[in-house]
Amino acid sequence: MLSNNATAHVLKTFHKGMIVTGIWHKEAYCIHRQIGKGAIGTVYLVEQLSTSQFCAMKVADSMQAIAAEYTRLADIHKEVRSRHFGPLLYELDDIDAGLVRLHFYTMEYIEGVTFNNAITKSSPRQSLQYVTQLLIHLQCLHDRNLIFSDIKPENILIESKKQLVRVVDFGGVVPVGRMIKQYSVIYDRSSWRMGSRKSDKQYDIFAVGILLLQIFVSQNDLIKAQKKARPMFVLYGIIHRKLASVELKRICIKAISGKYQSANNMHTDIELLLSKKVINHYKLDYVFWASFTFMIGSILYVMNQTFKW
């Protein structure tokens, strides 16, 4: 995160038990801990003293960034009242921190695990189901001509209660046709030298393609691949080697090469694949064939024994 030294200094003094109060609305919050650090600010878990309610507070020195993100998220919520895939918003205010003026907004604290943690504990089938949920959310945004941009595991939470996929950090959201402001290199198609950084639906879908690949390939392999001279070919190589089913390869390649016209189309393809068969690694295929041959063998042996052929 880029910020001036004074702000960095002030944020360092934020500690557990510290009380911060908004200048305009006079709401007081007790800081519990830092939850994360985004491109434009730091997020804390805080307790609103007047209600004893826990919420997340995003603090930054850029008034523009905080206000823009709050306004955008508020607009999205207004339009999609039924489905809250982003955090609910509470309030927007300033903090007088002596040397500098900081800006914050508070939102719902979503308890859950990040996408990366979730996939290590789930079957490939379950992980693919998370991806389909994410695609539904993206379609919702795309229908409003908005591109999420910064799709990465850290921004996708699986809510503990209902196993629902929620999206956080709307700081990168831009209308179609704008420059992508916020991205993470391994989910960014320009860094793979596979397209421009002008926002379109395919930019988001590319990132989902990489996420999907990550269910089967470690993040480190992708980071290494991207540093190669012709990263695109290395990426295709990984897809061919590491994805077991032809259908899955096809979906992944379509996603990263911009062949999907909408998130819905990718969603339909994955749903179709999920309805057809068990998604597994090669290894499990071997297990299946091994047990199949063993079964036939034992049936023949038993028949041989009983009927004395």
Binding site: W24, M63, A67, T71, L92, D94, R178, M179
Partner: peptide, 22 residues
Amino acid sequence: GIQALAPENRGKFVELMDDLSE
């Protein structure tokens, strides 16, 4: 300047700044 405005009223100007930056 813009800091004199209540946070709720800043949205419009922030959008203008976004457009100009782009």
